[in-house]
Amino acid sequence: MRVNSSKRLLLVHAHPDDETINNGVTMAKYAADGVEVTLVTCTRGEEGEVLIEKLANLASSQDDKLGEHREIELKNAMDELGISDFRFLGAPNKKWRDSGMMGTPQNEGKDVFWQSNLDEAANELVKIILEIKPQVLITYDEFGGYGHPDHIKANQVAMRAAEISGTQGWEIEKIYWNTTPKSVIQMGIDKMKEVGSDFFGAESVEDLPFAKPDELVTSVVKAPEYVPQKLAAMKAHATQISVDGPFFALSNNLGLSVRGDEYYTLVKGQVASPLDENGRELDLFAGIK
């Protein structure tokens, strides 16, 4: 890939669809602004559930062809977000398989991402970092958002790769972890209750492991004008996301800002202006020359 922009953003995710759910608005906004956006996906999501009944045979318990199908879904989603540079970690020579959840037989497989050698996987990412030279990296927190082993490993690989690349000629200036403030999630729970629905079965924000104390949220990308692109990309991941389900239908009608605003915790670098009314930076590239 030839670098054409002075601003370059790298995202590291575990499975196809994670990027759209967590960062769809961010990706679409920065791509439209001329930033070089690169997505690295660590597995093909072979162990995901299949929400489309007529495609149930793709599941790992049947024909085990979900990974190939999700590659197509990812491409279609990236087309919607305007992203041309998206890759699988280790491709074309190495492929790590979706690890499934902790404690499952799939999680013990020798070829799954969770069981991969950390430095081997990290060095595959280092190759990409040294090629594209990103100033900004986005990945999960150390808990992987909600504890999925592939999300945890993606964090470990991304952070290790950033460390290694710093010794090989490229220092990533700012590193962000995806997060969602508790106040925003609680607002969603309250609004869903008002209309007689629930928020993924949660009675309280304390029931949701991915919600973080507001004071840990350092940054937010506010770009509601890109919500249509994000929704279109979510629809592209049709085996994994039911956009037409009750939650998304209701949240759309309620105008929940959780979908137009995407939140981050800065773990490397300095928060820089411009800031919003809560003191959160509004541009992930702020302070980078």
Rank of each mutant, 00 (worst) to 15 (best):
N178D: 10
I189Q: 10
Q106I: 11
S116L: 01
M101Y: 12
I132F: 15
I164V: 06
G196Y: 07
K174I: 04
D198Q: 12
G201N: 13
D190R: 04
T139R: 12
Y176L: 00
T180W: 10
K110N: 10
T180G: 09
N155R: 07
S116W: 02
N117E: 13
V195I: 15
D150A: 06
N155F: 15
G166C: 07
F143A: 15
Y146P: 03
K153S: 01
M101G: 01
D150Q: 06
A161K: 00
S197K: 08
Q186D: 14
A202F: 10
T104Q: 07
I128Q: 04
S116P: 07
Q186T: 06
F143E: 14
E120T: 12
Q168F: 05
G144P: 09
E194R: 09
L137V: 01
G166K: 03
G144D: 09
S197R: 08
Q115A: 09
Y146T: 08
K182V: 12
I172Y: 04
Q115L: 07
K95V: 13
D111A: 01
W96R: 04
S116D: 02
E124K: 01
G147H: 00
K193I: 05
R97L: 14
V157R: 01
G109C: 05
V184K: 11
K110C: 02
M159W: 01
A158K: 04
M159T: 12
N107R: 04
V112N: 01
K174R: 11
G103M: 02
E124Y: 01
W114G: 00
W96F: 13
W114K: 03
S165C: 11
D119V: 06
Q168S: 01
N178C: 10
D119T: 11
K193L: 11
I189F: 04
K94C: 11
D198N: 15
P149T: 04
A158N: 07
A158T: 05
S183Q: 12
I189H: 09
D190K: 07
I189S: 12
A121V: 05
M192C: 06
P105D: 11
E203Y: 02
E108N: 06
G100V: 02
E108L: 10
A161I: 02
F113M: 02
L137P: 12
E131H: 13
I172C: 10
D119Q: 07
F200I: 14
Y146Q: 02
G145Q: 13
W96L: 03
R160G: 06
K94N: 14
Q168W: 05
S183W: 12
K193R: 12
N117L: 05
G196M: 13
K153M: 03
G145W: 13
E173K: 11
Y140N: 10
E173R: 12
E108T: 05
A121S: 13
K133C: 07
V126F: 09
T139W: 12
S197D: 07
N123V: 05
G103A: 06
F143G: 14
T104K: 14
K133R: 14
D119F: 12
D150G: 07
P181Q: 10
Q106E: 14
A154V: 04
E163R: 14
L137E: 04
